[in-house]
Write a protein that binds this DNA or RNA. Sequence first.
DNA 1: ACCTATTTGTCCGTATGTATG
DNA 2: CCATACATACGGACAAATAGG
Lengths: 117, 117
Amino acid sequence: MLLVVDPGSPAPLFQQIADGVRAEVIRGGLREGSRLPSAKELAESLQLNLHTVLKAYQTLRDEGLLDLRRGRGALLTAQASVLGEVAQEVPLLVARAKAAGIGPAALSALIKEEYAR
Amino acid sequence: MLLVVDPGSPAPLFQQIADGVRAEVIRGGLREGSRLPSAKELAESLQLNLHTVLKAYQTLRDEGLLDLRRGRGALLTAQASVLGEVAQEVPLLVARAKAAGIGPAALSALIKEEYAR
DNA sequence: ACCTATTTGTCCGTATGTATG
DNA sequence: CCATACATACGGACAAATAGG
């Protein structure tokens, strides 16, 4: 799996990892049941601390994309499989919003409201 | 605020803290805008590590109950205010479920399914 | 049934960064 | 400018669950 982090980026390292995994899921490189490298392995290959990778994994777990189990590792969930499908609809919506002069914050607010109701 | 943790309990310390705050919210002792003690303060008074308290606070933030801001502290959100109201409806539902022979796992599954759809 | 290695979970400690007041 | 307080990252240690021999 292609995963790189930029220590100079303003984005937190753990978030860069989570973003990378999410992107890979959307790209189709990771499906339900796919297994991520162990946190220790990934930490070593990225030259990061174990905890930083664990936090990234736990973030993805909180999003419902990862199933973490001691001794077993990190497996992508069924929800991860459909993330890609949902993601395909995003560009069209964003394009329309932009064309209508709706900014990212406003669109996010709309989405947030829709979730709330 | 009354908050105690039991190091001998199987429940993680950070979760005990989060549970305690949630209980205090439901009890009515904490409302929207209420300010929790700083993580450092609480950690010292409970004789725990700063990170343990921070993790508890971040858990509550993820639940939408807490608003964490650097330099400002931890403030209860509007959502915290309504948690108490929702919580009042729980005992009745649980009582009915128990009377009907429905176990906790089954009821949780029903709730989970309802959220999913 | 037992043991061992693996892997995540939690907790502690320390340091530094960054936004707030 | 300074103190406060959360955010991130690193490090180490031990526990608990899992898998495999």
